[in-house]
Each structure stands twice: as C-alpha cells, then as structure tokens.
Amino acid sequence: MGMLSRSPWVIHYDGSSCNGCDIEVLAALMPRFDVERFGVVNTGNPKHADILLLTGSINEQNKPVVLNIYNQMPEPKVVLAVGICATSGGIFRECYNVLGGVDKVLPVDVYVPGCAVRPESIIDAVVKGVGILEEKRAAFKAAGKA
C-alpha cells in the first residue's frame, strides 16, 4: 500500500443523472456504510482529488464542465463511471440531449452498473479505483515524473 491508496480523495460530479446515484454516493458517507473509515474523503475541490466519481450521462452542457474538472485534477488520477447512465447513457440513451456514457469524453477506469447503483457497489468501485491509482502511480514514477 502506498501513500495515496490509504487515503484517496474523491470528487463527485453529477452529469445528468436522475439524482438516485448521487444520493447513494452521499449515502455511502453516512454511518451505515461510512467510506471514511477507508480514509476516503469527499472533497469539493478538483485540485485536491485523486478520483473523479461521475454519475449520469454526458450532454452538451456539462461536457466542458466535466473536462474542466478532469483537467484540474493532478496526475495520477482515476475516473469512475457510477451507475448505468454514466456507463452507457442507460434508459436516457435515446434522448436527444444525451451524448452517452462518460467514456465519450474521458478515459474511464472503472464502470459500475446499477440503476440506481447500490452504496456497496460504490465502495467496491472506489477500492478498485484505488488499486488502479496505485498502478498508475507506479507507472508515473517509472517514467520519472514523480
């Protein structure tokens, strides 16, 4: 375990979800699931974050916002697409204003299915994301960037 994996900081952004997944992301913070026991901190500042947790699909309006958040995050970083809308557009795939899943604009590392996704899956995804973050960090180091 490296430094980052013991305390990943997560930033959450709601693309165009129905709110269900967002509420479950918050529910993962409260006493029953309590992700903070793994050192996960939910931050509002992209420059503090290691993991970008996106719910909901991408549309014309939020595309620049999502890219902006992603670009502000320091390397190495991991992107989680949480919920079926974020993975593929889900039930709203056919809507005219929905471009599709998060992978249309960002490289996604972990896809989490579910409508709405359960808090347990979110915790699993974050743990998986932490593993990927470690790998990325190792590669980053090997490339002589850190």
Partner: peptide, 10 residues
C-alpha cells in the same frame, strides 16, 4: 440545462 435530457420526448 446541465442535466437536461429531454426525456419528455422519449
């Protein structure tokens, strides 16, 4: 309009 999906047209 950040989460406008246009689902009425579905």
């Amino acid at each position: 309009g950040f989460i406008h999906r246009g689902l009425e047209r579905l």
